[in-house]
Design a protein around this nucleic acid. Structure first.
Lengths: 324, 324
DNA sequence: GTGAAAGCGCTAACAG
DNA sequence: CTGTTAGCGCTTTCAC
């Protein structure tokens, strides 16, 4: 990238200001001059440096996205929509996987700040509330409420929990398990758990709750969790898995143990991941696209100094397919 | 980000040069001075601007990653490993989804160039060879050979095709279909197709080849493709799907049509996506982690001016599970 | 050991 | 309509 605005200016025999002007289409320049400058830029294969511009404008047009793990299909899908919307609005995306590691998340936040990103979407959070408040950059959190002052986007986890549990009850399940990621992660997803408990209590059913440990998305851990569940509760006839990925593990165990689905065991997942469309899995569908787009929109509004709602809760819906 | 190196310098009562020196740990400074400067930086919550540094050093420590679609689990998984390795090496990742759109891909390349990324990993390509050659930036392509002069990383697609086809033949399939994304996309994945044909020809079996249209990963399209296949070829007893996602659609149709798997129809996929571990799907496993890491490594080597191999082909392996 | 000055590539006053 | 100048935040000669 040796070629700078100065090279273009020299080639045409004008000042850099003039070149800058045609670049930004400011002020009045004769058509012929514009033409000459544009030709020179083309010829030299000149591309203005966003780095220099960022320095000057104090604005990078980059947003940071921090996730636990992009390879998890839910995050892959939401990221796709975040990217698409950000791109439309002229923003680039810097992708950061925290892997639920506090240290890595912290380092990434420092990196993003150093890179002068204009804002950050948090799809992961492992630090303390005050750490986030001191980031001092426009922020939106996805699926988690970090503090009252940081806007978040989520879907209606409570309602999702109600819908899923009621379906299993309606289908006459008598022994139901709720399976989830770690509840201490302090996600809004915990409300699914709360809803489950409220629906199930006082009903004439057995129930149990199982959660993974804190290490994030290890499919092998999921597997162990599920297999021990079936060992301890052989009479199980309903499972509410708080993610589609977990639900797949349940289906796998059922195949392995020869439990018919939905005949002997009914299974409902959560998320409504598009890539799992072929699965025939009953699930609670989150409006993933909308969530991603709103996250970007509210972030850009903050960047523009406009107010944004602090709490955004979008509706979910039940998609009943072959596993119930 | 109002606080700059100048603020720190003023607070301590030294020149910006001195602050810069402790920042970069250059030259000899007294311990007490270092201490004072560090304290001041902490107190002011100062974070040096990577933007200013990039401008000066002509190096951003950012690499661009262009993919068709991050929500496709294969790309999600490879991206996870690319990110992890890049992070270790001190590089950040700018994520770009082309959605197989030529225009978007071109715009993204210009954006990346303007952002002065140090190199680009191409996991998508829709433009002409010369367009890529003129990018004039360190480049590595993933799973595609753009030109002889651009290094690529791939797994052994031909061998994968052989392994998959032979397995179906060994299992006594008499009517076999090969299913793939669009073969005109000019991917190395086409070699799976070539291998299929070579293995199947001259054998006493029927075979057919089906491909999706160019529009990328539309799961609904996959579904149509598969359902029309079974309509036209009711006697089908073996399917080699060139991605795990396609294989899932095949399994879905089999469930729908009441075809037993593997009893009546045997199905083998391709990719070995970790997120689909629960699927019990026989598949050809690509070394996704290694592919991602090598892509980054070879890119960084180019950035450092070191030579890299132009062709890297990694071995695949057969993972036989319940669908064959 | 430390500072002054120049410059990375660009834009924005301010003149003319 | 176009050019001169200053400066964004930082590093790096080159002096002292």
């Amino acid at each position: 990238m040796a070629v700078t605005i100065k090279d273009v200016a020299e080639k045409v025999g004008v000042s850099v200001t003039t070149v800058s002007r045609v670049l930004n289409n400011r002020g009045y320049l004769s058509e012929s001059l514009k033409q000459k400058v544009n030709d020179a830029m083309e010829e030299l294969n000149y591309h203005p440096s966003e780095v220099a511009r960022s320095l000057l404008r104090k604005k990078s047009n980059i947003i940071g996205l921090i996730l636990p793990d992009i390879s998890h299909p839910f995050f892959g899908e939401v990221t796709k929509h975040i990217e698409a919307y950000a791109y439309e609005q002229g923003y680039k995306l810097m992708l950061c996987n925290s892997l639920h590691h506090k240290k890595k998340e912290k380092e990434y936040i420092d990196l993003l700040r150093a890179s002068r990103v204009d804002g950050i979407i948090m799809g992961s959070h492992t630090m303390s509330v005050n750490d986030y408040k001191s980031i001092n950059l426009p922020l939106v959190s996805l699926d988690r409420q970090i503090s009252k002052s940081i806007p978040f986007i989520a879907s209606d986890n409570y309602q999702g929990g109600v819908l899923a549990t009621r379906l299993l009850l309606r289908k006459k399940c008598r022994s139901i398990a709720y399976l989830s990621g770690n509840l201490r992660l302090n996600l809004l997803a915990k409300q699914r758990h709360d809803a489950f408990l409220e629906q199930v209590r006082g009903q004439d059913v057995e129930y149990t709750v199982r959660q993974t440990d804190l290490n994030g998305f290890k499919y092998k851990d999921y597997e162990k969790l599920v297999s021990s569940l079936f060992e301890e509760r052989p009479e199980l006839d309903g499972v509410f898995a708080s993610s589609d990925m977990l639900a797949l593990q349940v289906l796998k165990q059922c195949r392995r143990l020869g439990r018919a689905v939905p005949g002997q065991v009914k299974v409902i997942g959560y998320d409504g991941i598009a890539a799992l469309d072929a699965e025939d899995l009953t699930t609670i569908v989150q409006p993933i696209k909308k969530m991603g787009e709103l996250a970007v929109q509210y972030l850009l509004q903050q960047i523009a100094g406009e107010p944004v709602p602090l709490e955004t809760i979008l509706p979910v819906r039940l998609s009943e397919k072959g596993t119930t």
